[in-house]
């Protein structure tokens, strides 16, 4: 059997998905990135290989997420694509006719508007992280609640308290204040969800026409409290797809299928998981820009460089065909 591998290296999680030739997910893996993208990609590949038992041959690889170039170099990806495109492709395959995608990840949140199956508009959070998963993560930690329990607790609330949502710092002080006043935890959590939704809709969804059907994905979609808060704010149902947390990787796998159409794959095999990759870096002293150049080394050999503005370092390496 043949399959396509999609890898999404995000700020918080690293996800791998393997789809069959028909685009249906055979295996998905969700790992926390923990600031170690290379290790996590390798660990994910190992787990994937173990789960597949050599029954499926990978004939295409796509990478996405903020670590997409890194993952692409390590695995020899056939396509490296930004997360907006991959999320849109995955959602419109999982739910044909989808018109709005709400996506909240670890450090960014985005809204994607689709019309007739193509991306018509999108927005991402710009200078503020108040409307993202990391914010919920931090507040949960403050309240000593596991993020996994956040949603079910918030659902128990009867009267959500009002919490300022514009700024994470103000939200936190508001929350502490409400705690000291004696409100119970579920009501505070539900209030947090509503604050986040408000901020998201005002900040990211500003001026966008949110039409049904609406899909809610990204790690935060696991939180039932958030889904409920979105439904309350929008006044219509919000769908959370079964693989909501690996949609980026799924989209990357689908794009890999397109990219390897009538073409061999550049996949370097699962054994890259055992090779020695290191990320090094140095500050170039060629000009006052002092660019931070990043080098990816495989067993001491430089296989990729980026980060220089002028191309002095990245152009030295033989330029591969552009795939992103």
């Amino acid at each position: 059997m043949y399959g396509y591998l999609g890898i999404d290296v995000g700020s918080v999680s690293t996800n791998l998905v393997l789809t069959g030739e028909d685009g249906i997910i055979k295996q998905s893996i969700y790992l926390r990135t923990q600031g170690k993208p290379i290790e996590m990609v390798q660990q994910g590949l190992k787990q994937m290989q173990a789960a597949l038992l050599d029954k499926i041959k990978v004939i295409g690889v796509g990478t996405t997420g903020s670590g997409r170039h890194l993952a692409g170099v390590i695995t020899g990806a056939d396509i490296i694509k930004n997360e907006i495109t991959t999320h849109a492709i995955a959602a419109s395959n999982v739910m044909p006719g989808v018109q709005t995608i709400l996506e909240i990840g670890g450090q960014d949140s985005k809204i994607i508007i689709l019309r007739n199956g193509i991306v018509a508009d999108f927005a991402m959070n710009t200078v503020c992280a108040a409307g993202t998963g990391s914010f919920l993560d931090q507040q949960a930690a403050r309240l000593n609640i596991k993020i996994e329990e956040f949603g079910s607790l918030a659902m128990q609330s009867s009267v959500p308290v009002r919490i300022a949502g514009r700024c994470a710092v103000f939200a936190e002080s508001d929350m502490i204040h409400k705690q000291q006043m004696g409100y119970n935890v579920p009501d505070i959590l539900a209030g947090l969800c509503e604050a986040l939704v408000r901020n998201y809709l005002n900040n990211v969804g500003k001026g966008k026409e949110i039409l049904q059907p609406v899909v809610f994905q990204g790690g935060v979609a696991a939180n039932a409290g958030m889904k409920a808060a979105f439904e309350r704010a929008l006044g219509h149902p919000v769908h959370v797809p079964p693989y909501f947390d690996v949609m980026g990787a799924l989209g990357a796998a689908m794009l890999a299928r397109e990219a390897t159409n009538r073409k061999g794959t550049g996949f370097r095999g699962f054994d890259v998981a055992d090779r020695d990759f290191k990320a090094g870096g140095f500050a170039c002293d060629g000009c006052p820009n002092v660019c931070e150049v990043v080098e990816i080394l495989e067993s001491g050999q430089v296989i990729a460089r980026w980060g220089d503005r002028c191309g002095r370092w990245s152009n030295v390496l033989e330029r591969h065909e552009k795939i992103s």
Binding site: S66, T85, V119, F122, T126, V127, S324
Partner: peptide, 27 residues
């Protein structure tokens, strides 16, 4: 709209630009 400030994270900018260019190309 892109808002610039002290933050120098290029990844975020590149992602937005790529996605915008993809959108325009598909359109």
């Amino acid at each position: 709209t892109l808002i610039v400030d002290e933050q120098s994270g290029e990844a975020g900018l590149v992602t937005r630009l790529e996605a915008f260019v993809d959108l325009l190309a598909r359109r």
